[in-house]
Write a protein that binds this DNA or RNA. Sequence first.
DNA 1: GTCTATATGAAGATAGAC
DNA 2: GTCTATCTTCATATAGAC
Lengths: 201, 201
Amino acid sequence: MARLPFNQQVRQAREDAIVDAVNRQLAGKGFDLMTMDEVASEVGIAKASLYKHFDSKEALAAAAMKRLLGRAQAELDRIEAQGLPTPLARLEAVVRWTMRVQLDGEMPSLPSQNSSLRAALMADMAYLGQLMAVSERLGHWITEAQSQGQITTAVPAEVVLYTLFARACDPVLGVLKAGGHAPDQVIEWVMATTFGGLATR
Amino acid sequence: MARLPFNQQVRQAREDAIVDAVNRQLAGKGFDLMTMDEVASEVGIAKASLYKHFDSKEALAAAAMKRLLGRAQAELDRIEAQGLPTPLARLEAVVRWTMRVQLDGEMPSLPSQNSSLRAALMADMAYLGQLMAVSERLGHWITEAQSQGQITTAVPAEVVLYTLFARACDPVLGVLKAGGHAPDQVIEWVMATTFGGLATR
DNA sequence: GTCTATATGAAGATAGAC
DNA sequence: GTCTATCTTCATATAGAC
C-alpha cells in the first residue's frame, strides 16, 4: 500500500464521510427523495462543496453503490476464508449478510425504475465491473451448488442469482421489523421462505 | 344497481380514464417520477381539470390503488368460484394473477418509502378497509392451507402473507422479462422459487 | 368543469469571493 | 476547497375567465 500525501488523505476522509451520509439517505428514503441540501447538511459542509467532490447526484449514488459492492466482495472473501462445507452454506451466508445490512439501515436502495440514475450506472464502468465480479463469484457458487444437488435445477442459475439479489432489497424485511419482530427472527424467517419455499416439503 | 344520471356517468367515465392513465404512470415510472402534467396530457385534459376530480397527486395514487384492490377482490371471487381443490391451489392462482398484472405493466408500484404518500394512504379509510379485506381473505386461505399441511408452518401466517404480497412488486420479474424471457416462463420460474424454494427437496 | 396563465416552492447545479 | 448567494428548471397547486 502506497502512503498517500496528507492532503489526499484528508480529501479521502471527507469523501468517505460524504458517502456515509449518502448511504444513510439512500437507505432511509431512497434516491428520489434524497436531496443534496440534506446530504450537505448531514456532512456539515456547504452544498456547493459537494460538487467539488462529486459531479452530480447520480455520481453520489454511484459512489455509494460502488462502496457497497466493494464491501460485498470483502464479505465474499471472508466467507470463502471461513471454510464452509458446501456452496449452499456459502450462499446462505451471503444472503444473511445482505439482509443484516438492510435491517441495519445501511442498504442503499435504488428505485428500480429511475431513468437518469440507471443511465448513469450503466455508463459507469467501475460500477459495472464490480457488479459483474460479484455476480460471477455468486454464479460460480450457484452452479456448484446445483451440480452438487443442493440448489434446485428447476430454474436456471440466472433466476437463482436474481432471487438472491432481490433479498437485499426485500420490503418484507422492513415490514416485519416494523411489526415489532427482532431482526434475527426476521432474517431466519425470510431465509426459510427463500431457501425452503412456502409449500411444505 | 341504481342507474346514475347521465352527467354523473360522464364524470365517472372521465375519472376512470384518469385513473387508467395514473395506473400506467405508476406502473411505468412510479409515484415520485409521475407528474401531473404528464397524466393530464395523457388523458387529454388540462392539468387544472385534474384537480376538479382529485384533490392531490396522493389522492390520484390512492384512487389507483383502491381500484387495484377492487380488482384483486374480484379476482379472489373468481378464484373461489373456480372450485379449486385446495387452499394452496387458490393461493397459487392469486400469485399468478398478481405477477401477470405486473408483467402486463398494470401494477401500480408505490415506492415503499414515501412519507407523503404513505401518510395519505394510511389516512384513507376506504383504502385501509379494502387492504384489510384482501388481507383477511388471503389470511384465511393461508391458515387453512397450513392446517391442511400444504403450506409450511416454519413461519407464521403473517410472513406467508407478506411474502405473497411481495411477489406483486418483485423486481425479479422485470429483470427476467428484460432479459428476453417469455412472461409465462418468468411466472413459472418465480412460482417455483416462491413455493418450492431455492434449496433442493 | 374546462381552459390559460400564474403563483409558489423545492431542488439540482453554479458564480464568484476568500 | 470552502463558503454565501443565486440561477434555473420543473412540478404541485391555484386563480379567474368562460
